[in-house]
Nucleic acid binder design. Structure first.
Lengths: 211, 211
DNA sequence: CCGCATCCTCATGGATACTG
DNA sequence: CAGTATCCATGAGGATGCGG
């Protein structure tokens, strides 16, 4: 752990725990699913292996992450503790805040379709419940993310292989633009190709813009 | 600005902007009110003056902070841009998350009563509207923070000098414990001394715990 | 292979002194 | 008052080693 701010302030103490470089990105990965060391290394392009080991130790000592044995035999697996999982709220807040930085497109940055799971979830949070449930796949960069809409809310995850009501194909900025438009943050640029039941897509994305 | 993560991911891009050491604490100070350079230096114990200058330049270039002339004559003043002010949501999220770190008390850390403004605001957010409006002062460490409750919500700020319906005196962990208890996060430890109209205090703090 | 630990270099942070 | 300039300590990043 890096030097503490030494301030009796909630924000300072939170940052003492998760403010170090890479920490919140590790949490991002684990918010999607528990993961092995190698998976974290792959999902965090640019991280040095010694830093990842250091940070995992810090986060474990702080009670954010727990190291445990994976279901399959003897492999080590990392997962968030209940308190660590509560970081979803501030993390999604930061993701919503970053929308203006994202609609500009990826530039030369690394990209993984799984990184759309949290943003879509964050941007669709609070969206008006759909009249009927549907599952729409979003094809981007060769991978498939699914958005499941029910009366009780919206749930975003990697495609689990089950049937989809429709598939939307677009690149990442367009997908985020679509979701942002639902919140009336920005307009959509680029094109989207829809396969299957277009009405199901509308169920997810075409609810009335908020505020 | 420190090295970019180089990831096309909302969280990574947000942290490219505000993830560097001290950045979010500077935002914390400016969320309370615009401030002069010297006020920031005083409100951020431990920061080196060159770092503060660097960070203010970075945040200005990123569009989070703006440098402007203060009302009184020719002095320079720093304030959040509208986009920067939207960091209130994730910052308050981190403050809520840090409650378990705060109820343990200050230890040897620096403390300023003004740092209670954001936590109280964050913890009281969403609290049931009071039946009547009242303003309760919270005296802590010689300073006074006021909590104004109206039908439209709760507002926390440093005391503006106007009349108070009551004054609660307690140390910081007790104050935060009180606020946390409203959200049923934790129990209150320690003692509180109330001066004035005790019913007004109840208006603020004794609404039914949530969830 | 996986799960780290070690080593080395260099950019960044921190403390202090100094200047317009 | 509002920052620069300087110096040193520390942490990040990359390569590589190594036991299981």
């Amino acid at each position: 752990m890096s030097r503490s701010y030494g301030q009796y302030c909630g924000l300072a103490r939170a940052l003492d725990v998760v403010g170090d470089r890479w920490n919140l990105l590790i949490v991002r990965q684990l918010l999607m699913a528990p993961a092995r060391y190698r998976e974290l290394l792959d999902g965090l392009p640019g991280v040095a292996t010694n830093l990842l080991a250091d940070r995992l130790r810090d986060l474990e000592a702080a009670g954010v992450v727990e190291r445990r044995l994976a279901e399959q035999g003897n492999a080590v697996e990392y997962a968030l503790t209940p308190w660590g999982a509560e970081l979803r709220e501030p993390v999604e807040g930061l993701i919503r805040w970053s929308t203006p930085l994202m609609v500009r497109g990826p530039g030369g940055d690394h990209f993984r379709a799984e990184w759309l799971v949290l943003p879509l979830s964050a941007l669709l949070t609070g969206k008006a419940a759909a009249r009927r449930s549907s599952t729409v796949g979003i094809g981007v960069d060769g991978a498939l993310v699914q958005v499941r809409t029910t009366r009780s809310g919206t749930e975003v995850s990697p495609h689990d292989g089950r049937d989809l009501d429709a598939v939307v194909r677009a690149d990442a900025p367009v997908v985020l633009g679509l979701a942002a438009r639902v919140l009336a943050l920005d307009d959509v640029r680029g094109s989207v190709h829809i396969e299957g039941d277009e009405a199901a897509v509308r169920t997810v994305f075409d609810s009335p813009p908020r505020s």
